[in-house]
Simulated scan of single mutants.
Amino acid sequence: MSKKALVVDDEKAIVKGIKFSLEQDDIVVDCAYDGQEALDMAKATEYDIILLDVMLPKLTGFEVCQQIREFSNVPIIMLTAKGDDMDKILGLEYGADDYITKPFNILEVKARIKAIIRRTVRTTDTAKVMTFGDLKLNEEYRRVFVKDKEINVTSREYELLELLASTPGKTYSREELLETIWGSDYPGDERTVDVHIRRLREKLENNPSEPRFVRTKWGAGYYFQA
């Protein structure tokens, strides 16, 4: 079955170029040109990935991302201005999985999309569940539960949690986590890891400032406490 993507940008030439390129790889592409249209389409259709520009009419990309996260964990890649680190950090804060800096190479865009889709494809194997007290990770469907209530996490947040939880007590440096989850060619820095760890704690922990599960080993990195 073909994958579905939503491309959102108010520059129609950019949307047209991305749409044409993705369709060469049998990806079905819908297009939106302002934030409200994008939000309405995300509510009406289940997408495999969303490419979302930061600067949009009606609603900003940040606002769209934040509102989508209230009902969906669809992977979101933010398109940000060149060299604007604050946009990148804010995108991650609002729940984006990744970001690409404009101007971009369409081959890089396609590579990022394919990598994220591969990681989020559901398998048909028997579900494997990791359980740590009130915390459960369903590895087949990439879902997280706390006290049997599902927690809405992004694909990156899930991958980070799954890696840490699969080896309790092992400390991973921020560099190791960045390379393992985001890849060695990822242009971001270690703040990306810190943002995702903080968001995970806010979602999982009763008291994020004193985490029960995702712990810090000062000067070394992060580890999972089973």
Rank of each mutant, 00 (worst) to 15 (best):
V109D: 03
F104H: 00
I106S: 02
L107N: 15
K102S: 09
K102L: 09
V109S: 06
D84R: 08
Y94C: 14
A81Y: 01
Y94D: 10
K82F: 07
Y99T: 04
I89M: 09
I100D: 01
G95T: 11
E108D: 12
I89H: 11
K82Y: 05
I89N: 06
Y94M: 07
I100V: 07
D85W: 00
K88G: 12
L107M: 14
N105L: 06
K102V: 05
D97Y: 12
G83A: 04
R69C: 09
E70I: 01
I100S: 01
A96L: 15
Q67I: 01
F71T: 01
F71S: 02
Y94V: 14
S72T: 05
E70W: 00
I89Y: 10
Y94Q: 10
G95N: 14
S72L: 06
K82I: 06
M78Q: 08
L79V: 09
M78F: 03
E70A: 13
K110I: 13
V109R: 01
I100R: 00
K110G: 12
Q67D: 09
Y94T: 13
Q67N: 08
D85M: 13
R69A: 14
V109K: 01
P75G: 05
G95F: 06
F104L: 03
Y99R: 03
D87P: 09
E108S: 07
P103K: 01
F71C: 03
D84P: 06
V109F: 01
L90M: 14
L92W: 12
K82H: 07
I100E: 00
K82Q: 10
